[in-house]
Design a binder for these strands. Structure first.
Length: 334
DNA sequence: AACAATTTCAACCGCAGCGAG
DNA sequence: GCTCGCTGCGGTTGAAATTGT
């Protein structure tokens, strides 16, 4: 019989997301949350499969994402965690707030692997490379100990991944046990990284029945309400509901008399003409700025900023930590 | 300036895991 | 215990960007 495909693929769009699609997805999730990824595309009017929507949200549009390269500290954490967990990227990501498994995986494959090899460390075993391997690395020639002629880098990578999988399979339980009970050899213990449980991260709407000042909201949120689930594998299965439950966030916006009407501004030009990511030239405000809801600076600004005459615009420098090379998006105040 | 080679990373694919019935 | 449907994960791909010649 075979499995049903994750979605009816006929007529569904694939490939890079357009600004319009992003807008639709964000608007829908922020106003409705996502009850079910499979149903979301239909409800939101997107010609994408639910899986694609989920991925786009989690890896790119989620409000609490950090953008830009991993810091040295984050990189070191990834290395430490990888030494213990292997290629379990979602687990690794769950310890790095604002980072996704995909991002970490990519960073590992493109940066960290090379870095470790340069340092004479085998990225798979985290042990020093043999002299021969190290010298080969130094020469920039990659040859496996088992001769494999003109294996492409891709094949080489596949081999290593297979090996990695096997190694991982054998040691998985030991590792898990080790992680649960002890610190790593360099003193870093992932158990020290706090993971929040869902009850810690939901907005306390009951308390918001009372009148709040803007500062109340921001303080409330900054303390613990908006936090990073960091990856889909964290304590709750619903990314949005764990960060900002859709209907609660809507209530919050309603109560603040904020109409969630997204305006799309280029990160490098918030007022003029724009060139969107796909290279199309827009003379309307039509690209988006990512928000920095992780620490709610942008929210802070749009709640408190008097300078924008009603129209909230991304928080400039404050946003840059997350935005960097990305566009970002903003709200309009009524 | 033009082209080739390499690198990066967003997005896709297939499978595993899990809960519901 | 089995099947089904959904979600999440990890591996892979390929277009775009960057670098080298």
């Amino acid at each position: 019989m075979g499995r049903q495909p994750c979605c009816d693929k006929v007529g569904l769009k694939k490939g890079p997301w357009t600004i319009e699609e992003d807008k639709k997805l964000i608007n829908f999730i922020l106003t409705n949350g996502h009850c079910c990824w499979r149903a979301l595309p239909k409800l939101s009017g997107l010609l994408r499969c639910g899986k694609s929507c989920r991925l786009r949200w989690i890896n790119y549009l989620r409000p609490d994402l950090k953008r830009g390269l991993l810091s040295e500290y984050e990189e070191q954490m990834v290395i430490d965690l990888h030494a213990q967990l292997g290629n379990r990227w979602s687990k690794i990501a769950s310890h790095l707030p604002g980072r996704t498994d995909n991002e970490i995986k990519n960073h590992w494959n493109t940066h960290i692997k090379k870095k470790l090899k340069k340092l004479g460390i085998d990225p798979l075993t985290h042990k020093p490379l043999s002299e021969e391997e190290a010298s080969q690395q130094a020469q920039g020639r990659k040859k496996s100990l088992v001769p494999h002629d003109d294996k492409s880098p891709k094949q080489d990578q596949e081999d290593k991944q297979t090996k990695d999988k096997q190694d991982q399979h054998h040691t998985e339980k030991d590792l898990e046990k080790n992680i649960m009970t002890s610190a790593s050899s360099d003193g870093f213990c992932i158990d020290e990284v706090p993971l929040l449980s869902p009850h810690e991260i939901l907005i306390d709407i009951s308390s918001s029945q009372h009148h709040h000042t803007n500062d109340d909201y921001v303080n409330n949120i900054n303390t613990s309400k908006f936090t990073s689930p960091s990856s889909s594998s964290s304590s709750t299965s619903s990314c949005v509901s764990s960060v900002v439950p859709g209907d609660e966030f809507s209530k919050f916006l309603d109560e603040m008399e904020i109409n969630l009407d997204l305006k799309w501004l280029s990160s490098d030009d918030s007022s003029g003409e724009h060139i969107s990511k796909d290279g199309k030239f827009n003379n309307t405000v039509d690209t988006m700025d990512l928000w920095d809801i992780n620490d709610l600076n942008s929210l802070d600004i749009f709640l408190n900023d008097d300078d924008h005459d009603g129209a909230f615009v991304g928080n400039g420098n404050g946003c840059s930590r997350m935005v960097l090379d990305q566009d970002s998006w903003t709200f309009d105040l009524l």
